[in-house]
């Protein structure tokens, strides 16, 4: 953790997966929780509402990548099967990050993970999904494997809240805490919550 004990203050974090409607409540509370920008699903262009910057987020399937080529915003490739990452070198430059839908993925073998590593784009890890699985007693083997690969420097990972409204937003330090409790070193956990989302947002804006 940073040496300073002040937790809330000037907004410093960026949430890259907000899936709800942007309303007054969100605009008021997101900066209070420490968010200066959010990537929102369903908006077409970047804009600023109050103290909050909004960046468009596009969830792209393998078949529809062409439609989003050249779009300004965060382009996230949804990976539902091992086939989605076949011939991945063709995808370089077309997407900004990966989101592996572990619930739909029937089985991810070594080849799949090799492709994830070789592709080189950051992989998204959603806080709310991960916590839901833990609390429901569902296995988190793949998430854990992903975090181990991250801790070894094989892949880039970033964490986002996966919120759908203001009440489901989480404080960035809670994401940091979950990552450290799952065995990620503190320096890397900070990077996954603060630095990597900032880099992606600056590329997308």
């Amino acid at each position: 953790m940073p040496r300073s004990s002040r937790i809330s203050g000037d907004p410093v974090a960026i949430d890259l997966c907000f899936r709800g409607a942007v309303d007054d409540v969100l605009v008021r509370y997101a900066p209070k929780l420490g968010y200066e920008a959010m990537a929102v699903l369903g908006i077409d262009s970047a804009r600023e509402v109050g103290r909050l910057k909004l960046i468009p987020r596009f969830e792209v399937t393998r078949g529809a990548i062409g439609r989003y080529r050249g779009s300004r915003g965060l382009r996230v490739l949804l990976v539902r099967s091992e086939d989605d990452l076949k011939a991945y070198p063709k995808l370089v430059g077309s997407v900004d990050s990966l989101r592996v839908l572990f619930e739909d993925l029937s089985g991810a073998g070594k080849d799949f993970w090799r492709r994830v590593v070789s592709f080189g784009v950051p992989v998204e890890l959603e806080f709310s999904e991960l916590l839901r699985r833990i609390l429901n007693g569902n296995p988190i083997d793949y998430h854990y494997l992903l975090l181990r690969l991250y801790a070894r420097g094989r892949v880039k990972v970033y964490m986002c809240s996966g919120a759908t409204d203001a009440s489901t937003l989480v404080h960035p330090t809670a994401m940091f805490s979950l990552a450290t409790l799952l065995g990620v070193p503190e320096v890397l956990a900070l990077k996954a919550v603060f630095k990597t989302p900032r880099e992606l947002a600056s590329n997308a804006a």
């Binding site: 004990s5 002040r6 929780l33």
Partner: peptide, 17 residues
């Protein structure tokens, strides 16, 4: 971060310091 509801009121608990 898990506390979302207190007494039927939707809340967000913000750690300050």
């Amino acid at each position: 971060s898990l506390i979302r509801d207190i007494n039927g009121v939707k809340v967000v608990v913000v750690p300050v310091l």
